[in-house]
Structures are given as C-alpha cells and as structure tokens.
C-alpha cells in the first residue's frame, strides 16, 4: 500500500513537471493550429501527386452551431461547385434557422436554403433563443438510402462517403423516401437521385469540400476520423458532439456541437 502510495506521489510529481512542459509546448501550438486550420486541413490529406488510396481514409464533418452565422455562403458555394439546380427545392446543403419562443414550438425556416440570408424584419421579441443549423447528407455508416436502393446505384465508398452512381440510378426515389434527413432530391433534368458527396472530387485531391472552404467562421470542420491530430478529432475531443436522429441508428458521419434538443 505504502509502496503504491510512494509510486503514486512520484508519478504525480513527474506528471506535474511534464504537464507544465506540455502546457508550455501545446498551448501556443494549439493556438497556432487553430489559426491555421485551413492549412492543416489541406496538408493532411496528402499531396495531390500521390495516387489516392480510398481505403486509407475515413472522412467526417463536424459542425459547430455556436459558430454558424447563417450567411448561407456554404449553400451557395455548394450549388456552384456541384451544378445543383438553382430552384429553391433542390439542395445538397442548406441552413435552417431555429427561433425558440419562451413558450411553445420552435419556429424553423430556411428561405431558399439560406442562400439569400434570413429576413430579420419579423424577428419577434418573444424569441427566447435563436441559432442556425447547417444541414447536409449525414453520410451514415448505416445508411438507409444504401440499404433500400434496389440496384446498387447508391453505395458507401471505401473511404466512408455515400455516393450516387448517376449512370446506374433508375430514379425510383426509394432512397429519397428512406432518408430521415431530407438530404436527397431527384435531379430535375438528369432524373436520378442526387445529394452531397462531401465534394468527393475535391477531398480525393486534398482540398476541403466547397462549403468548408468558404465558411467564414470555421463553423464546419472536415477531416479524417481516427487520426489523433486531425481537426475533426480535436473538434470531437473539445466539444460535446451529437448526431441527428441518433435513435434511428443510422450512425452519421456528420457531427454537431451545440445542437439544441429542438434540432431534428
């Protein structure tokens, strides 16, 4: 018992020295790191010259609701990057505004997905709290859309991204019905299911998704799961994260920090 105690003391002493050293080293590093998140993000995905190996990656996105200012730049950039039809009923990503009154149901809106901003005239003094929530395909590990696709036209790739094969999709829309998040739509001219790909054409070349690139407040973080130093791992460690509709067991790869219970 004594021995153990002694050891423990020793350990604590060492630990404190180590700890102070670690603080001295890590705090400035951490500050630097957060300041240059975009650099780090781009650097970790490897240089574009190397052949891309999907099996070595496991992507995820994290969204900090406290940081989102609802500017809609992500939804706008997404439409440009991916040629999403501009009509207000087709979105790969969109922003919802929640206004919780003192009593009663939260009021949610998303005019044109938030691309043109949110009207402020009608903000009422009865609002108890309000916040923005960006939404997109959750790239579920246990994706209902993949499960129900009758022909194998939507699938989870080796790097964990749920994709649509638009040359194989029959356009039955079962996947759209099966998605609990409303993340899919039928492309009005191509007549196939369409949705967020995490900008697969960008991430496989070491660039962040377009929405992450243009987000002015770093409310969206993208990166690799399971790597100690990746921005997403750090995000997960420093925030209490949740996923949407966890009770459906879809196991999403889009994580939210600061999501109120009203968010669904």
């Amino acid at each position: 018992m004594n021995e153990q105690h002694g050891q423990k003391c020793d350990f604590v002493g060492m630990d404190r020295r180590d700890f102070l050293g670690a603080v001295a080293r890590t705090v400035p590093t951490w500050l630097m790191v957060t300041a240059i998140v975009p650099e780090l993000l781009a650097a970790e995905a490897g240089s574009p010259d190397e052949k891309y190996r999907p099996e070595e990656h496991r992507y995820a996105m994290a969204i900090n609701i406290h940081k989102c200012i609802g500017c809609g730049r992500c939804a706008d950039a997404c439409k440009t990057e991916n040629n999403v039809p501009r009509e207000p009923v087709f979105f790969r990503t969109w922003i919802e505004r929640y206004r919780v009154p003192f009593e009663g149901e939260a009021v949610v809106d998303s005019p044109n997905g938030g691309i043109d901003g949110f009207p402020t005239e009608d903000h009422d003094s009865g609002t108890f709290k309000a916040f923005f929530v960006p939404k997109l395909c959750n790239h579920c590990s246990n994706a209902p859309c993949v499960q129900v696709c009758p022909v194998g036209a939507t699938f989870t790739s080796q790097d964990g991204v749920v994709l649509v094969d638009k040359d194989y999709c029959v356009g039955c829309r079962y996947c759209i019905q099966a998605c609990p998040y409303g993340a899919r739509y039928l492309h009005p001219t191509e007549k196939v299911a369409d949705k967020c790909t995490f900008c697969y054409h960008r991430i496989t070349k070491g660039q962040p998704p377009a929405c992450v690139e243009v987000c002015p407040t770093q409310a969206r973080v993208f990166g690799e799961m399971g790597e100690q130093a990746s921005p997403i791992s750090r995000f997960m460690r420093f925030n209490d994260v949740t996923v949407l509709k966890s009770w459906l067991n879809t196991d999403p790869r889009v994580y939210y920090a600061g999501a109120d219970e009203e968010v669904r």
């Binding site: 440009t80 699938f155 790739s157 994709l163 194989y168 900008c199 697969y200 054409h201 496989t204 660039q207």
Partner: peptide, 13 residues
C-alpha cells in the same frame, strides 16, 4: 468505376 466518375468532376472553387 462510378467512384472514379464522381471523383472526376471538375472543381469550381
């Protein structure tokens, strides 16, 4: 090959 086709999309940003 669908994976490569998705990855081949040109980037606008």
């Amino acid at each position: 090959t669908a994976v490569d086709e998705v990855a081949a999309q040109p980037a606008a940003y």
